[in-house]
Simulated assay, not measured.
Amino acid sequence: MPDHKTTIATNRYEQSPKRFHLPNTGQEEQHVYVLTLKMTSSIAKPMNDMRLEHFPAHLNRTPAHLTLFHALPHSQISTMQNNLNAIATYAKPFPISTGTPFRIGRGVGIGLGEGAKDCIGLHDALRAEWLGFLSDQDQGGWKPHWTVMNKVSDEKQVKAAFNTIRRDLFENTYHGLVVGLDIWKYDHGKWDWMKEFNFKGLTKADMKSRKGSGGIKDMFKSMSVRKGLKKDYEW
């Protein structure tokens, strides 16, 4: 299970019940789910420390996170879990690092440096499988990032935070690993942790010995996340 609390309060969907944010299943969903990257604490902790420092405390109900999909439908949960199990079987943990900070409306985001292409490849493989039922938001383009400040009306405060974060990241690059995926159930204002899918990274010999092919497994075989690692990271 993740290091952080398994229940996270939020009211994002209650505040924005727009069609843009809802799954395209043609029915009212019992629940929706959020899919995030599971990272080692060597990068998760400094990102969360920045969020704790700069995000308005009364609105900060989640630790810093890197979201792949925002509203996955309950009616497709069995299909999605099968796909995620397949990816976790063949994917290896891969390195990531902090990149360049940028302004996002009334806040600040931090992009990925190392690992951005691998994250986008992972997202694209899943989006191709799930396109028929994704929300309009989740069907669109995706830029992997952490949001460490948002919903701040004072422009001077946002600018000062951006400059502070930019100096920090100029002096320090934070490194870690993506080691799997976490899926969360949204339930009346809370994120309830549901399940983790840890990357196992089977070898080519392992793959050849397994029967069956097609779909998300074949898309994932050629992805660069299967490369070996050259560094040791804190788990």
Score class of each variant (00 low, 15 high):
residue 176 G to P: 01
residue 154 D to Y: 02
residue 184 W to H: 06
residue 163 N to W: 07
residue 124 D to R: 11
residue 151 K to C: 06
residue 195 K to P: 02
residue 178 V to K: 02
residue 143 K to T: 15
residue 144 P to S: 04
residue 167 R to N: 15
residue 128 A to L: 09
residue 177 L to K: 07
residue 169 L to K: 03
residue 192 D to M: 09
residue 179 V to T: 15
residue 196 E to W: 04
residue 164 T to F: 11
residue 191 W to R: 10
residue 146 W to G: 01
residue 155 E to Y: 08
residue 139 Q to R: 13
residue 204 K to C: 10
residue 133 F to A: 03
residue 201 G to P: 01
residue 143 K to C: 13
residue 176 G to E: 07
residue 121 G to M: 04
residue 125 A to G: 00
residue 172 N to H: 15
residue 199 F to S: 04
residue 141 G to A: 09
residue 202 L to A: 12
residue 180 G to L: 06
residue 176 G to S: 05
residue 197 F to A: 05
residue 132 G to I: 01
residue 138 D to K: 00
residue 188 H to K: 15
residue 157 Q to P: 01
residue 166 R to T: 15
residue 158 V to G: 05
residue 131 L to K: 11
residue 118 D to K: 13
residue 156 K to W: 09
residue 207 M to D: 13
residue 172 N to W: 10
residue 131 L to G: 03
residue 140 G to P: 00
residue 166 R to G: 07
residue 199 F to K: 02
residue 156 K to T: 13
residue 118 D to R: 12
residue 200 K to H: 10
residue 186 Y to V: 08
residue 158 V to A: 06
residue 186 Y to F: 10
residue 123 H to Y: 10
residue 129 E to F: 00
residue 124 D to Q: 11
residue 163 N to E: 15
residue 118 D to C: 11
residue 157 Q to C: 10
residue 194 M to Y: 08
residue 195 K to C: 06
residue 121 G to V: 03
residue 134 L to T: 00
residue 123 H to M: 09
residue 166 R to A: 14
residue 190 K to N: 14
residue 145 H to N: 07
residue 128 A to Y: 03
residue 123 H to T: 06
residue 128 A to G: 03
residue 156 K to L: 14
residue 172 N to S: 13
residue 171 E to A: 14
residue 144 P to Y: 02
residue 141 G to V: 07
residue 125 A to C: 05
residue 197 F to Q: 06
residue 142 W to D: 07
residue 160 A to P: 03
residue 144 P to M: 06
residue 206 D to K: 02
residue 181 L to F: 03
residue 188 H to W: 11
residue 190 K to H: 12
residue 161 A to R: 04
residue 165 I to R: 01
residue 142 W to I: 12
residue 148 V to C: 03
residue 168 D to L: 13
residue 135 S to D: 03
residue 194 M to P: 00
residue 166 R to E: 15
residue 190 K to W: 03
residue 191 W to H: 12
residue 203 T to S: 15
residue 173 T to M: 14
residue 186 Y to A: 05
residue 182 D to L: 10
residue 178 V to T: 07
residue 176 G to I: 07
residue 123 H to L: 08
residue 147 T to W: 00
residue 184 W to Y: 11
residue 182 D to M: 07
